[in-house]
Nucleic acid binder design. Structure first.
Lengths: 156, 156
DNA sequence: TTTAATTCCTACCTATCCGATGGGAAAAAG
DNA sequence: CTTTTTCCCATCGGATAGGTAGGAATTAAA
């Protein structure tokens, strides 16, 4: 299960993505950087109600994780460092929740040897590696841009 | 990530499965019940070292979950209620770790409405439902019998 | 140059859960 | 009636999740 941290992260990110797309449409500049139109924490909380302080720590994590940039002081806030399509959901989850794999011994980014278990002979390893791959097939393919897409018929 | 409980459960189950298969081969009776040859906790712990008391609670869970049967008293122990192929890994995980879905609002067996979020409009729901399906494609297909299969070249 | 708005940093707090243990009751076999 | 087992209940220490508090540093604007 995703932690609250990751859930809140996705909500906040969806706001940033929507603003990012809107801005590119207005300016008719699909490659413009988002760094000059940051979004403040209080703005994000107003759109998706949650604890301001808690969101603060989450956004800091996303910044350290290389997904967001920030601007301090009045008029400051956070902005996407890359195009939404260039940040897979897997990256967000790894930053906030750690490993995606169901076992440390089949994790690609957080591998840890499992004691009391010969990996070559362990039937579970192979199966959980399958699960990991099934997960990554979705989470590495889907990106932040997919967060902003709503099913047909829904208003923005 | 799987809990220790689930990991230990799989280890214990793998011994039960191996014994089950061996027994069917010996008796040349592929449909024989396993209820007359139970395996005690101490036997399981000897094969896969772990806390006896902890394994006890796990096996009790598996029993309540409908996967194992038990026999009390001298010569007693636990046994598989069904053919290994008839118990998907998903069932084991649900008993010990709860939901497989990454969000309560996309869980099939443990659904909970998510407040502060219109499910029809939430971009995350749809994506996490994809992740859930990818997981289940493996976990509902793979069964206990797959636990006993080792990669070629490995000794038992 | 002051004020207001913001990110940034460190520390803390509380409740829950995970992993594990202990003591014994109940059943079954010999 | 003794031994071996499952079964049940209570507890426990440590870690983690989720959230809070207070203030320093930075920036824009009045």
């Amino acid at each position: 299960m995703l932690s609250k941290k990751a859930q809140y992260a996705f909500r906040a990110l969806s706001t940033l993505v929507r603003r990012d797309l809107a801005r590119r449409n207005e300016q008719n500049a699909p490659d413009a950087s988002a760094s000059d139109t940051p979004t403040s924490i209080s703005d994000m909380v107003q759109i998706h109600p949650m604890s301001t302080k808690f969101l603060e720590t989450i956004l800091l994590d996303l910044k350290r994780g290389g997904i967001l940039g920030s601007k301090k002081g009045k008029g400051g806030g956070y902005y996407l460092l890359k195009h939404p399509e260039d940040t897979p959901l897997a990256q967000v989850i790894r930053i906030l929740d750690g490993p995606i794999a169901p076992l440390p011994c089949v994790s690609l980014h957080f591998y840890e040897r499992c004691h009391d278990c010969n990996e070559a002979m362990c039937g579970l390893n192979r199966l959980m590696a399958e699960v990991r791959d099934a997960n990554l097939a979705v989470l590495e393919q889907r990106t932040l841009s997919d967060l902003a897409v709503h099913p047909e018929g829904a208003a923005a």
